[in-house]
């Protein structure tokens, strides 16, 4: 498993810069959480009380918002994040088989990371590639007409 990094002074400094850049926005919390996750790869538990205080909301509210959305994670992901679409249009093109293959060959359930820290497996519901499914997203890169061969190649590259 990937070890949780330390949230020290340098990280606090970065967090305060994010807050300074975003706190003036109407409804600043989501932009702030996105920026924090973009910077650190996840939303560190240490960041939430700081964000809450800055926006004058309770810790419970900050936690409630962060945990409501599928995108935000409370621990680091693997070096590669593999998202596979499970929505109807991709199912019509055999996404279920692809999903089974990914889960079996990686021995992972959703949101889990391989022991070597190489790959995190996520499900996603629609990438808007519904006329060229099954679809995947690998570290933000879109893949259409995905099949077992493409998937195996992506996994092999992520592990190399």
């Amino acid at each position: 498993m990937t070890a949780t990094p330390v949230f020290g002074d340098a990280e606090q400094h970065v967090l305060h810069e994010i807050l300074a850049a975003n706190r003036h926005l109407e409804g600043a919390l989501l932009p702030i959480l996105h920026a924090v996750q973009h910077q650190f790869g996840y939303v560190p538990a240490e960041a939430l009380p700081v964000i809450a205080k800055d926006l004058n909301i309770s810790r419970a509210e900050a936690h409630g918002v962060m945990s409501f959305y599928h995108d935000f994670r409370d621990h680091p992901a693997g070096r590669t994040t593999l998202k596979i679409c499970r929505a109807e249009a991709c199912q019509a093109m055999g996404a279920d088989d692809l999903v089974d293959h990914a889960r079996d060959s990686l021995a992972l359930d959703w949101h889990e990371t391989t022991k070597d820290g190489a790959i995190t497996l996520e499900q996603v519901f629609c990438l808007g590639l519904c006329a060229c499914g099954p679809a995947m997203m690998v570290d933000g890169k879109l893949v259409g007409r995905a099949d077992v061969a493409k998937l195996d190649a992506i996994i092999a590259e992520a592990r190399s």
Partner: peptide
């Protein structure tokens, strides 16, 4: 403004809550 992976935010009132940071 960028959403955060919640399907229900396509419903207009939950979208507004999301935009308000809720």
């Amino acid at each position: 403004r960028v959403g955060a992976g919640a399907y229900v935010c396509g419903e207009e009132t939950s979208l507004l809550n999301s935009m308000e940071g809720k």
